[in-house]
């Protein structure tokens, strides 16, 4: 009885030993060399696998960083300058200065501004509505309000405002990964330069129709009247396809265009309230 047990143990141990030796040699033969730096770089990255850098995930991006000659075009929008700086230090390279960005919705078509003309009772999916028909309003460019962007956001930086029916972007949480930009079938979310105190001036409209039809569809549509273009001293405003665009990199936040816009399609956000205008008191003189 005891010999059976002994033989079994010896046999199994021998098999294990032989297998281990074989496996060791196979592992040596087919060994894939992986730069240990990749692991180190990956450890520095935020590990959210959002794809904002344009790669499949953080590991993929780390590989690209290690292989790259310089960091041109490589940037982790989530980590931003601090993370990229550390990675650069580790790899002995220089990180180019990349301005932080933030997602901005280029539409202000709340039901108040943009009346609904039909009722959609189908699937709650912007892509489907966009391919099916114009949407519940008469604007074929604006927000459809079914929240594809909100579902695409992995950082909880977006939610739908039930009153306006438009998505709201929380600046502090937005990492500018661009997932919402890709998710939007109407391409009305833009990544714009993040300014001090989250101040923003932008044309909250994407309507490329001529003034008349655009205005009929939405009260706050850009009608390409050129007033903002004329008032801007910094060449930050361009008008193309019946639509004004403010370049966030050139804009100096002087707010002149906001005052000038007749439809109110230029929006200013997070500014301190304006000083009340000193109205000229005209005294009625009675004789």
């Amino acid at each position: 009885m005891s010999s059976t047990v002994l033989i079994t143990i010896i046999c199994l141990s021998l098999i294990a030993l032989i297998s281990a030796v074989i496996l060791y040699f196979i592992a040596q033969k087919f060994k894939i060399f992986e730069d240990p730096k990749i692991d180190e770089v990956q450890a520095l990255l935020p590990a959210v696998n959002c794809g904002g850098c344009g790669f499949a995930g953080c590991r993929n991006f780390a590989e690209a960083l290690v292989k790259a000659k310089d960091f041109e075009g490589l940037n982790c929008p989530v980590g931003g300058a601090p993370v990229m700086g550390e990675v650069a230090k580790l790899l002995g390279k220089e990180a180019p200065v990349v301005e932080p960005l933030v997602a901005v919705l280029l539409c202000n078509g709340s039901p108040e501004n943009r009346p609904h003309t039909s009722k959609y009772d189908g699937v709650s999916d912007c892509r489907i509505v966009n391919s099916l028909y114009i949407g519940e309003t008469d604007c074929s460019y604006g927000c459809l309000g079914l929240g594809d962007c909100v579902r695409a956001c992995k950082f909880d930086a977006m939610h739908m405002n039930t009153e306006t029916g438009l998505p709201v972007i929380i600046d502090e949480k937005c990492v500018s990964c661009g997932a919402c930009v890709k998710a939007c079938p109407r391409n009305i979310i833009e990544l714009r330069k993040k300014a001090k105190k989250d101040r923003k001036i932008y044309v909250a409209c994407s309507n490329c129709d001529k003034g008349g039809p655009a205005r009929r569809a939405c009260k706050v549509a850009c009608i390409a009247c050129n007033k903002c273009f004329n008032v801007c001293e910094f060449n930050a405003i361009t008008i193309e396809n019946n639509l004004a665009y403010i370049d966030a990199f050139k804009c100096t936040f002087c707010r002149k265009c906001v005052n000038e816009c007749p439809t109110g399609s230029i929006v200013e956000l997070n500014f301190p309230p304006r000083k009340p205008k000193v109205e000229l008191q005209t005294e009625v003189t009675t004789v």
């Binding site: 892509r127 391919s131 099916l132």
Partner: peptide, 12 residues
């Protein structure tokens, strides 16, 4: 279920 809605989207 909105089968065709999604199939149409996939098809296009």
């Amino acid at each position: 279920r909105p089968l065709l809605d999604y199939i149409r989207l996939g098809k296009s």
